[in-house]
Design a protein around this nucleic acid. Structure first.
Lengths: 200, 200
DNA sequence: GATCGAATGTAGGCGTCGCCAACAATGCTG
DNA sequence: CAGCATTGTTGGCGACGCCTACATTCGATC
């Protein structure tokens, strides 16, 4: 679906979006290693230099891809977060959403976490990351306010939860954990994170 | 040092090792993106096709690099593990060693976790991963035996601790956590992991 | 110790890539 | 409708991975 053969007379209309869409498809199907500007141009039906008008560089396209990824991830997290829930189910739901995203967008997530500190692009990027991380921080902050979580530097608490979630996502993206196993284990994972591993 | 223009007697002697060494240096200094077989050949002083005799393909060289990385990481973990210690300091030491490796070998670690399941090379690789992960599993198993940790599927416990550690390593490798901050936070991190985030 | 095959290195070439510059078609704004 | 910025095209440059054919060296066998 979605291969409408409309006549694109010279000017494509929205080449930039088309390139990003094609890139994301290729990324998902063939991996980041098989992403080439020339091939994308061929898929979209423009000349091999056309992408250069919209992305100064291959890295610029990857950055745009990552940015879009943060957008989608942020929406998924927002949608999954119910501030009314008590801590444990709330965090579980959020974790499930994050891991779900990791499952459906393994390659993209890898790209999102690849550090390429382009001095300018990193502004938008940093903002996007901040917005994503902020979601988790909010949960922690709320929980602290309600006394559902120990006092202490929120930074530290964010770090533990963030690292654990991201580590799981990386395991999924790296293929050393099947999606089923990951989703099935979310509840236990969050439980262990909140209650600790030592006997009480 | 080490750039002696000796007359190469046609056969290099140990080209494979020289290539791996040069590759690791380049990896550390310029990143994986700047790794090219032709450039490596130039650095070592052989023709552009010589590497092909030792690595069927670029990916094969990357695999060898990753394998060597697991070797070094395994040694670092072994050296840092003191089975006589109680759980918390033992795990802290192990975590410190792992994060130290991540700090000193960020790019390499990324390579090690990149999934490229070459059907054959993955055997050695899987074994190396297993040996690395096994170190952590041993700590958990010992702790369970001693009653320092809750009962339950060891797999689950390994997953939480492994994910947390790996998440931290990824944060470091990704540059969103400074080495100092990471090392300084290890103790708190392990503490939170073991004692949980909920008030007792 | 000479011989011959296997291992290792060389030379050259093919197709692809990212990037750049020069040119052409289109859209926009006065 | 004139002029200019935007967007797409063509062609080319250098580098890359990989392949094949060929050269040199090593080592096992007689």
């Amino acid at each position: 679906m979605s291969h409408m053969p409309e006549s694109r007379p010279y000017h494509h209309g929205d080449l930039r979006a088309a390139l990003l869409a094609a890139a994301e498809r290729t990324l998902r199907e063939k991996g980041v290693g098989s992403l080439s500007l020339r091939e994308l141009a061929r898929e979209v039906g423009v000349s091999h230099a056309a992408p250069g008008r919209h992305f100064k560089d291959k890295q610029a396209l990857l950055n745009a891809l990552a940015l879009a990824g943060y957008e989608r991830l942020g929406q998924a997290l927002d949608a999954a977060d119910d501030p009314a829930l008590p801590l444990e189910p709330r965090l579980t739901a959020l974790a499930r959403a994050y891991l779900g995203f990791a499952i459906d967008n393994a390659e993209l997530l890898e790209l999102m976490y690849a550090r390429k500190h382009d001095p300018d692009a990193s502004e938008q990027m940093a903002a996007a990351v901040e917005r994503t991380v902020g979601n988790l921080a909010q949960v922690v902050a709320d929980a602290q306010k309600r006394g559902e979580i120990i006092a202490g530097d929120p930074e530290d608490l964010n770090l533990v939860t963030g690292a654990t979630l991201h580590g799981m996502a990386a395991f999924i993206a790296g293929g050393m954990l099947t999606p089923e196993a990951a989703l099935a284990g979310v509840e236990t994972l969050v439980h262990h994170l909140l209650h600790g591993l030592k006997p009480r």
